[in-house]
């Protein structure tokens, strides 16, 4: 058995152990760990933002920086495609 195969077996064993422990340490399904923030958002989203759709009020108001990062990712992708494919155009 070559040294590369031994190293690969050890590496995959370590990764598998990490995945199994990560799967065992998650919360059970339908039982989140800290429900205070969720309960606050469920209770106050209509009165504070005025929106009936709670997901939109979280995405655009409570967690607006996530949407800003997503918009930045899309802008960067478009700029990269324009720059990369400009040289191919005749």
């Amino acid at each position: 058995m070559p040294a590369r195969n031994v190293a690969a077996v050890i590496f995959f064993t370590i990764v598998a152990v990490f995945f199994v422990f990560g799967a065992l340490m998650t919360h059970p399904f339908g039982d989140p760990g800290n429900p205070e923030m969720d309960q606050y958002i469920i209770d106050n989203t209509q009165g504070e933002t005025g929106a009936d759709n709670g997901v939109t009020s979280v995405v655009f108001d409570y967690r607006g920086f996530d949407t800003l990062g997503e918009a930045t990712v899309l802008f960067t992708a478009f700029a990269g495609v324009i720059v990369l494919f400009r040289r191919l155009k005749k």
Partner: peptide, 19 residues
């Protein structure tokens, strides 16, 4: 306006403009 119900589109402040 502050919406209580699914029929009033003139609600939610700056969220429709951001949409």
């Amino acid at each position: 306006e502050i919406g209580k119900g699914l029929s009033n589109i003139s609600t939610a402040g700056a969220l429709p403009l951001m949409n």
